[in-house]
């Protein structure tokens, strides 16, 4: 009886390994492989998009130029990564204290169908007050994502719902709009805050 159970586990394990390998191949080398994103994000000054912030104001790249910027992509129906990123950012901003006031902090939805201005307004209200929520027509979201070299994709789920795969990194730009660096998802806070300070220091370099 016990041997059978173990054999069962073995078979299930082998099946799981085979499936994992297949899924890995499909995503990395196979037809499911994403387009390589090797290019650096463009400077904000080279981007062209029109979006709306969570207070209904029209915004574009020029909204960000003049102050250093921290920006990231997500969607409010995201149960795991997005609230975690927003909480992390809120924590970094708390650590920066008064310095955080010099920063633009922008959460850009990749799911404008569900993330209306009102949905973004409610969502960002639960996090650090510096965080702005941007949404807009699908075509404009595609343009800003392209400028950032960020990827996103709508994925159907059971029962007719859908979720979004998206770039989870946090992008940092200097005050002059030049891309500085990015903070990868799950990077420890002790690396994140110095990176933000680098973007803040770019301000003086950009101004001269």
């Amino acid at each position: 009886m016990r041997r059978r159970t173990i054999a069962g586990y073995g078979a299930a394990g082998a099946g799981a390994i085979a499936l994992t390998l297949f899924v890995g191949w499909w995503r990395v080398d196979g037809p499911g492989a994403p387009e390589p994103i090797e290019q650096r994000p463009m400077a904000l000054t080279e981007m062209d998009f029109r979006l709306t912030d969570h207070e209904g104001n029209e915004v574009g790249p020029e909204t960000l130029i003049g102050r250093p910027t921290m920006a990231f992509f997500g969607f409010t129906y995201c149960p795991d990564v997005c609230p975690t990123t927003l909480s992390d950012i809120s924590g970094w901003l708390d650590d920066l204290g008064d310095e955080a006031k010099q920063l633009n902090v922008v959460f850009i939805t990749v799911d404008p169908e569900r993330d209306t201005v009102e949905a973004m307004a409610e969502y960002v209200s639960y996090f650090h007050p510096a965080i702005r929520g941007w949404t807009g027509p699908e075509g404009q979201i595609a343009r800003i994502a392209d400028g950032f070299r960020a990827a996103y994709e709508r994925v159907p789920t059971e029962g007719g719902d859908y979720t979004m795969n998206h770039t989870a990194s946090v992008f940092l730009f200097g005050a002059a709009g030049r891309f500085v660096t990015m903070i990868d998802y799950h990077e420890p806070r002790e690396f994140a805050v110095p990176k933000i300070r680098r973007a803040l220091e770019e301000e003086t370099e950009g101004a001269t």
Partner: peptide, 24 residues
Amino acid sequence: MPEIHETKTNAEGVSSMSAAGEIA
């Protein structure tokens, strides 16, 4: 519909989520 899901982030920094299946 409660399910165990797993978030994965690939080399390009893109996060995706899928059902995790059985967990031993």
